[in-house]
Design a protein around this nucleic acid. Structure first.
Lengths: 219, 219
DNA sequence: AGCCGGCTCCCCCGACCGGGTGAGCCGGTT
DNA sequence: AACCGGCTCACCCGGTCGGGGGAGCCGGCT
């Protein structure tokens, strides 16, 4: 259970590497198995040593940390990459997450914090900046003001809105719901009136922005 | 810097509370300052003791953990709430994040893991399940296959698509771009042809799903 | 010079859309 | 019994949309 966590350090500055090595090496249950001074070398080292955790710098010559992360995870999927960054609000946070990073670590973090972050990601959890989480959540959260309006719709009107927002024509909606086209027109008209939408386009946009029709629904 | 982390336990089962107290209390730098057996009591205890971290159960009588989290963060914004859950894939993960939770902890986690999670959230970071992160990231990531098609559009066509996806009519697009309606119609026609869209509705949906028009752009 | 792609505009026409209005049916409430 | 809201369908009409064609202008490339 409490196996030793094998760590690979990837940073172009020797000083940072030795600092991390000093912090992590002294810790029981953590072992720095290799170092690399560049993304390319980092990918090679990761492939060779198959570490549990990679501490990855972002800005490096040859190959940046984001791309290196991506390549490492393609080759060694079980590895967890902890991106070491200077600022929490950096642009590449989302890119790093897309590449598969398990978390972030500020360079100015204190030793205990670094050790704990390594342990947490080694166990399989993700360590993120709260600001990043908040932004991600905001992306997946419907605007509350929309909820009230959506609530005024009847079940049938919601059916129609769902198909309408999927780009169906009135005739298609009618066919899918086993209705007459005229009935669909009535429902669409009611939906437009209730949502204050000028046309079906506006209603569809409303549905999208409120998260009513969400491509990724399983959240 | 390494102040003592003051913890509040909120769980309706005394056994869980004493277990957590045993695990956390024995640890240097962590102090359990209060316990509560219910959401209502939890909110009261949090308001009174203003702990650094709250370990919050989800399923509780009277007031569930999500709502309790929300209320606590309204009253004591500096507190970090760590939600204790049984399964990582539970539905309320997103709800908890919306309520402001700083992280999650599995009930079956081992003592070291629990201590580390408390430390990490106390320091300000978030501890999440990788699956949750992946879903959130997927939400904020455009589909790559769409990129290629979008690239075939000319600058003018992209202008038109942007406005089209915003729900503008051809006349409005014409007015905003200082064009004749007929010109806009030509561009719209080209956009539809290039994207393989049947009508403007399909094109707008394409734009939305590809992240081309993203309401929340600042990520 | 010739060609091509992008941008601009024009006309025609069939189809779809949205608004207005009216009406019948059903189930629940007053 | 009377009423109301939701669901269903119908007709008319004006407007927009999308596809078809054609045309002129400009800048870059061959």
């Amino acid at each position: 259970m409490t196996d030793t966590v094998r760590v690979l350090l990837v940073d172009d500055e020797p000083l940072v590497r030795s600092g991390l090595r000093a912090i992590l090496g002294a810790e029981l249950g953590i072992e720095v198995v290799a170092e690399a001074d560049d993304g390319v070398a980092g990918v090679a080292a990761a492939t060779q040593h198959r570490p549990d955790v990679v501490l990855m710098d972002v800005r490096m010559p040859q190959l940046d940390g984001i791309t290196a992360t991506q390549r490492i995870l393609e080759r060694v999927p079980n590895t967890r990459v902890l991106v070491v960054t200077t600022f929490s609000a950096d642009d590449y946070v989302l890119d790093a997450l897309r590449a598969g990073a398990a978390g972030f670590l500020l360079k100015r973090a204190d030793p205990a914090q670094i050790r704990e972050a390594v342990r947490v990601v080694a166990r399989g959890d993700a360590v993120l900046f709260p600001t990043a989480v908040r932004r991600l959540v905001a992306h997946a959260t419907p605007q509350p003001r929309h909820e009230a309006l959506l609530a005024t719709l009847t079940d049938r009107e919601r059916d129609v809105l769902r198909l309408l927002a999927a780009g169906r024509t009135n005739a298609e909606i009618a066919a899918e719901l086993w209705l007459g086209v005229e009935t669909v027109k009535t429902h669409v008209g009611n939906v437009l009136a209730k949502l204050g939408a000028r046309d079906r386009m506006q209603a569809a946009i409303f549905a999208y922005e409120s998260g009513f029709s969400d491509a990724v629904s399983g959240l």
